[in-house]
Design a protein around this nucleic acid. Structure first.
Lengths: 142, 142
DNA sequence: ATAGAATACATAACATGTTATGTATATGGA
DNA sequence: TCCATATACATAACATGTTATGTATTCTAT
């Protein structure tokens, strides 16, 4: 899309392209982008309930519920009742989830290297700083 | 989400926040984000077929079809057969679509001002340049 | 101790996108 | 001319997210 705002057009295009390439890379490992925050949050055998996962992934609770249903169906995670709180469901990675999650970091690093090709360390820092300032300003408006 | 890549985490977060605020602003005018490219492409009485709109919005054809079905249902656009090509459907804005589309640019400018609060012109230029370089690098990988 | 608020989860309806596939029409080359 | 191919659109199945709402459980303040 060509928007009236060069800035948001650029960051949106940026995110879209990165997401596209990431999705393509992840397909090789049988993962989907939406699953990444869950896999990351549960690395190293960690256990979290669904609310904590929704908070971590920055999505609403119903979205996390349906995501986890699909991930359980696909054998990536396990869900079991929290013995200390009967409202709560504890989520852990299966061994297959653990194994597949180990592919994520190398893929992200590879794509980041591609995105920042030719950037000096100074340019990387400037970019990060500017983006952080924008995020700050936007967050204030929430 | 906190990803292993500070860069993509930042741009993704950036896009997400901007989208959130934009969606909130647009709600006041009865529009949705997905509709923006269509409204923009058809401004000033322009007529395009569905394929051209999909290309402009950078989404696949079936996605555009369902979007246009909803927009027609909501009275934003009109669809009629192309007399010169019976495969093709010509899309135009209704007067309500025209009217609502005029709110878009001010909203985008307002949000961009918020996002870039405190930026000097130089900083704006640097940011745009760096993002364009990233977009270039990513596009090469497609 | 208990009533009311808060919390965790599920479900439904929907928006927005994807890929895969089918149908109808148009077009270009033998 | 006519066949193969390309093009425009629709439909289906699905992923991923939203808001609104319901249910069950827990917590808190009286």
């Amino acid at each position: 899309m060509t928007t009236p705002s060069p800035l948001s057009a650029l960051t949106t295009r940026n995110t879209r392209l990165f997401t596209l390439l990431l999705e393509r890379e992840l397909k090789k490992t049988g993962l989907r982008i939406g699953q990444l925050p869950v896999l990351q949050a549960l690395q190293d055998g960690k256990t979290l309930n669904q609310k904590a996962l929704a908070d971590f992934a920055d999505i609403e609770q119903p979205g996390m519920t349906t995501l986890l249903v699909r991930m359980e169906r696909d054998g990536l995670i396990q869900r079991e009742p929290d013995p200390t709180d009967r409202r709560s469901t504890l989520v852990t990675l299966t061994s297959d989830g653990q194994r597949k999650s180990r592919n994520i970091v190398p893929v992200m690093e590879h794509l980041t290297d591609i995105a920042l090709k030719g950037f000096t360390p100074l340019e990387r820092n400037i970019l990060v700083t500017l983006l952080e300032r924008i995020n700050s300003s936007l967050k204030e408006q929430l």
